[in-house]
């Protein structure tokens, strides 16, 4: 039970670590995945720090106990890196509105943290903006895949796993993060249940990306003893 609890607490970290490890160990058939690497690395570091602070709060001085800033940075970095990766895909290059949305997100972030919310407190605006941006990107990707008769990329391309991971993650976590704080004040039990569901979404997200990268593997990047 305790182990399960630990697994759920660190669910933001270990699935991402698995995905990153697969990326580092195996060469990839389609090598335009540098942005995915940076996304995995950045989010892993931020999630690890956030989880570490929350797990070992007693180790930190009062001013460093809050990890909201890290989640706000995540809400900026994740859409920027994931959006940049998706926009670079040949399949989505023709959709110019994605570029406008991307720019709009940057402008919105600057305005939001300059005038409306503090970067040091939890930002519901950023959660909504992140989800909307990423859902529009991934839905465009899927709809284009259905409309396009030529099937420009195979269904086992890592981009499909990446989009599936993001879309499922955002569709689960959108409402959870939007109402997490009001629910915490009103129904603690339900809030804990929501956090656990969110943890499962994180696991699904990381493992789907890891699966995509594993299917896309093309030999080892460096020799490993006992592995052929």
């Amino acid at each position: 039970m305790r182990l399960l609890k630990e697994i759920l607490i660190w669910s933001e970290v270990w699935p991402l670590a698995i995905a990153l490890t697969i990326f580092i160990i195996f060469k990839q058939k389609r090598e335009n995945l540098t942005l995915i690497f940076w996304l995995l690395l950045t989010t892993l570091v931020l999630h690890f720090t956030a989880c570490f602070i929350s797990r070992f709060t007693y180790l930190f001085p009062k001013e460093l106990k809050k990890n909201n800033i890290l989640y706000n940075i995540l809400a900026i970095c994740k859409p920027l890196l994931a959006g940049a990766y998706l926009m670079r895909l040949e399949q989505l290059k023709k959709y110019r509105y994605l570029k406008f949305l991307y720019l709009f997100f940057i402008v919105f972030t600057i305005i939001n943290f300059s005038f409306f919310e503090s970067i040091f407190s939890f930002s519901p605006h950023m959660v909504v903006a992140e989800s909307i941006l990423l859902l529009i990107f991934t839905l465009t990707f899927f709809l284009d895949a259905m409309i396009d008769d030529d099937i420009p990329m195979p269904v086992n391309h890592p981009a499909y796993f990446f989009c599936a991971a993001i879309s499922l993650f955002e569709s689960i976590n959108f409402f959870i993060y939007l109402f997490l704080f009001p629910v915490f004040n009103e129904n603690l039990e339900f809030a804990i249940l929501m956090i656990n569901i969110s943890a499962l979404a994180y696991i699904l997200y990381g493992l789907l990306i890891a699966t995509g990268l594993f299917i896309n593997r093309n030999g080892l990047r460096f020799p490993i003893k006992g592995y052929s």
């Binding site: 409402f175 109402f179 129904n187 339900f190």
Partner: peptide, 10 residues
């Protein structure tokens, strides 16, 4: 209401 909204939304 909030609980229903969240469950329904998700």
């Amino acid at each position: 209401d909030l609980t229903t909204l969240i469950i329904l939304g998700i």
